[in-house]
Computed example of a mutant assay.
Amino acid sequence: MKYYLHSIINSLHQITSYAALLRKYPDKIDEYTHLIEHTAFSIDTNLQELFQTNHTPSDEYPKSLNTNVASGKRVLIVDDMSENREILSDIFQTLHCDVRSASGGLEALQIVGSFAPDMVCMDILMPGMDGYATAAELRKAGYEGTLIAISALKEDLSKSVFDAWLFKPFTAEQIISLLASQSISRGDITEVSLDFSPLSVAFRKELCSALEHGALSQSEKLVEMLEAGEIKTWLLERLDLMDFDAIINALSVDVD
């Protein structure tokens, strides 16, 4: 139940945020209208699943998720909107994290010094010092933890110093999946000898997009649609290990 409530409440807050951005940037009506429609569809999907499924305390999150991945971690949440801070705090506290929050970049820089967070989850559009500037200052000050951007904006690769990018509206599942994939050692590149050419470009793009957003359940549903064989087996094994990078690297060849 909590999994769906997190997702629905977050989506409602995001619609409010998009409406505010639309008033500020009326020339981007098509972009924000699309985001609002997409978020409304997400709410509708969650409500349908909520009322069609029998829930017990043990299945609040998909069973394939390792909900202990962040247990005991120190997390700093940086967002100028109190609603977003509350949602993220609730999610991380559910995962047994030690959570602090800041309403802006300058406050975040002060807290990091005494709190020493393992990860910082940060909005991009903030008054004063934005997310990019704050992240850059953290790195300049020697911060070596994980920096996660949580924003409705597309990542600017020319100036990003973030380790991961999570698009709003996010879900608790996406955060858990992202943290699990970040915890995997990147030292060794997974060797793949399979031929993925039988998979359509559209399928590969959709699966890679789901993985990049930490949407484990959606990724599993896509892979389950495939016919039994080596490709399906390999993909399911990688998903079980949360090795999203291996899948993305294997499927991204010749996709563009």
Rank of each mutant, 00 (worst) to 15 (best):
I124S: 06
A180V: 00
H213P: 00
A152Y: 11
Y18S: 09
R204A: 09
L157S: 12
M119D: 03
A215L: 08
I15V: 15
E49D: 10
A164K: 13
M225R: 13
Y18P: 03
P169A: 09
S158H: 08
P57T: 05
E107M: 08
D79N: 11
S177P: 01
L166E: 11
A202I: 14
M119H: 06
V192G: 00
N66R: 12
P57C: 04
I36W: 10
T171V: 01
S114T: 12
T56Q: 10
T134V: 08
A108E: 04
V78M: 05
D163A: 13
L179H: 05
V192A: 09
N66Y: 06
N54E: 15
V120D: 14
A108L: 05
N66P: 03
R139I: 04
L22H: 04
I36L: 06
K154W: 03
T190L: 06
I29L: 11
I184M: 08
E212W: 01
A135P: 10
K205I: 05
L179A: 11
G214T: 01
F203G: 10
G214A: 06
L241Q: 15
A246S: 15
D44L: 12
F203H: 08
V223C: 12
A141E: 13
D123N: 15
S181Q: 03
T233G: 05
S160A: 12
G229E: 11
L179K: 03
E60K: 00
D243G: 06
I43N: 07
R85A: 03
L35K: 15
W234M: 14
